[in-house]
Amino acid sequence: MLGVTPVKQGLHQKKEGTYIRGVTPLMRELKKNKILFLMLIPALVYILIFNYIPLSGLLVAFKKYTYADGIFGSPWVGLDNFKFFFMSGEAWTVTRNTLVFNTIFLVVGTIFDVLAAVLVSEMSGKYFKRLCQSFMFLPFFMSWVIVGSIVYNMFNYEYGVLNTILRFFHIQPIDVYNMPKAWYFILPAFSIWKNIGYNSIIYITAIMGINPEIKEAAEIDGANIFLRIRHITIPHLKPTIIIMTLLAVGRILRGNFEMFYQLVGTSSRLFEHTDIIDTYVFRSMISGTDFGMVSAAAFYQSILCFVIIVFVNWCVKKYEPDYALF
């Protein structure tokens, strides 16, 4: 009978009372926002081809891959490919190092990036500002290979700049490449140096979105610039900071391979504290790429990132639902 059929599981009843049997919420939404869906399609097709279909590579982590069988035909081997990582005794060390360094980079980096953005935006002097911003952008373009040479130039024992200066003042030279703890400062310093120009742009752009009338009103009301920054600028940046932080947390188990490989390199005595998952896996594959093992290590990193970001995103959703990633 028309219109009075009992509500099926999953059918959503509209207030007006008209509903058609067999129409799911998705189809209803599709009809209502047809154009929006259409606008979404190009990007969806793209990630289907370039991201989702290649996800089949994750299967390789659990298989013994051979060329003849391909990804789908190769036999399953359970967790065998994970053994090289977990039974080596190094798994915890490199995981810890990756987490620790990424967290330091995130926290210290964000502080410096926001600081730079705020100072640059609020200070006067149009040409000085532009000049400084351009200079800060330069390190982003220097390849880590060259930075590695510069770092070696600075810190090496015999002829490094640091030790030359120390010797000049009759101070005992320092063997930086044998002091793991020093690298808790050196690496974050270089990470900040490389990214401050690039990262601060996002915050600068956000600051530019502040309605100037609000700032003028505050100024008239007697708030000095420090107060204005604290109560207007920084709160306005909150959503941007949260989203940038969330995006970084989602990669917290993925180390910056290039940086560690070029700067720390093969200084084995530093590895206890500076070896990360990515460099560890790289060295293990030195006699030949084993797709299964490489895939297993990547899977390990991904699954941990996934658990962490889902949890953190859920936390954020509870307090500020607008700022959550998904």
Binding site: T266, Y280, D290
Partner: peptide
């Protein structure tokens, strides 16, 4: 293969 990969790492490091 797992042992060899783990050993590669030790050898390169040492």
């Amino acid at each position: 293969s797992s042992e060899v990969a783990a050993m590669n790492n030790v050898i390169t490091t040492m």
